[in-house]
Design a protein around this nucleic acid. Structure first.
Lengths: 159, 159
DNA sequence: CATAACGGTTGCAAAACGAAACCAAATAAG
DNA sequence: CTTATTTGGTTTCGTTTTGCAACCGTTATG
């Protein structure tokens, strides 16, 4: 073998799979943690760094990519520039479902790792478990769904 | 500086955060895609490899870690050994919510990347959007919840 | 004015990743 | 029965990413 293909990280842009596409944007070790931290109210670069214990160059890279992908925005809050806040966009806030599902999954199977609880702001009651539901609101497992193509034909995924 | 700490990938085991703990198990670029593929029916090593286009050594490592973490099991299906199937455990199947939430998020914000649809097996109707709900079944955004500690006191997360 | 804080960038070493080659056991083909 | 192919990896090697610390220009603070 004489030719080596360019060694780029395998990216999921072109995998024509929505899950892969999502992972391409927030599927690395840190991105979802940054988003989670932002949901707790963190906005400043140094605060992300201190709370998460992430290296500064990695944080820099992740914030840039989150901004690029429209998950966060960098807002100039300095009087004469050079003071910034990183805030979630609607797209970023919409990851609340994903992060909550992940958190609950971990709590169910690995036990609670922190003392943080999420409660309904109105009532103070704990949240319901996040589930996949049909349009009548009944929870479905993976066995209760079918994967079909555009024509409604079941995908033959024997392999 | 004379001492260099051992350079291990930062792990989230000890971050006492359930989200971090979850990401520690399935938070890399490939693990959730392997689980997703398994939900489509894939069970054999070579089939994962062909469907996902993942390098063999990486696939090997990911399957091992998923088995270690109880997300999948390796089942011996050879007559005299040496033929295996990798199947989801209950813990693995329970990631259905996370993966579906991720898929829907991507479809909402990046458009549909594949022609695959998920439908209710019984009715053939499309699924409802996955949302965080309170116990009355009302959907909540991140603004509708509070993060509190064990005593019900709101977390001061100004930073 | 001096000093610290903020938001980075740079340089280096360690670890993870990707592609291909290689390999032993099990199965299939002839 | 013998040979070829498939399966499920491991090894090798080069590239990319990560983690840590040091450094730097600008901005607030005492």
């Amino acid at each position: 073998m004489t030719y080596n293909a360019p060694m780029t990280r395998k990216r999921f842009d072109q995998m024509d799979c929505s899950v892969a596409c999502a992972l391409n944007e927030v599927g690395d070790w840190w991105s979802l943690l940054v988003v989670k931290q932002a949901m707790l109210g963190t906005r400043r670069y140094v605060d992300f760094q201190n709370r998460l214990g992430i290296a500064k160059n990695i944080l820099c890279d992740r914030l840039s990519r989150l901004v690029e992908n429209g998950v966060m925005v960098r807002v100039d809050v300095g009087e004469h520039g050079k003071r910034y806040e990183y805030r979630l966009t609607d797209k970023g806030r919409d990851l609340f479902t994903v992060i909550t599902a992940l958190r609950q999954w971990s709590e169910r199977w690995n036990g609670e790792k922190d003392s943080m609880k999420l409660v309904d702001r109105q009532t103070g009651a704990p949240l319901a478990p996040v589930t996949v539901q049909n349009q009548q609101g009944h929870s479905l497992t993976v066995r209760d769904v079918r994967f079909v193509d555009d024509n409604g034909n079941p995908l033959e995924e024997t392999g």
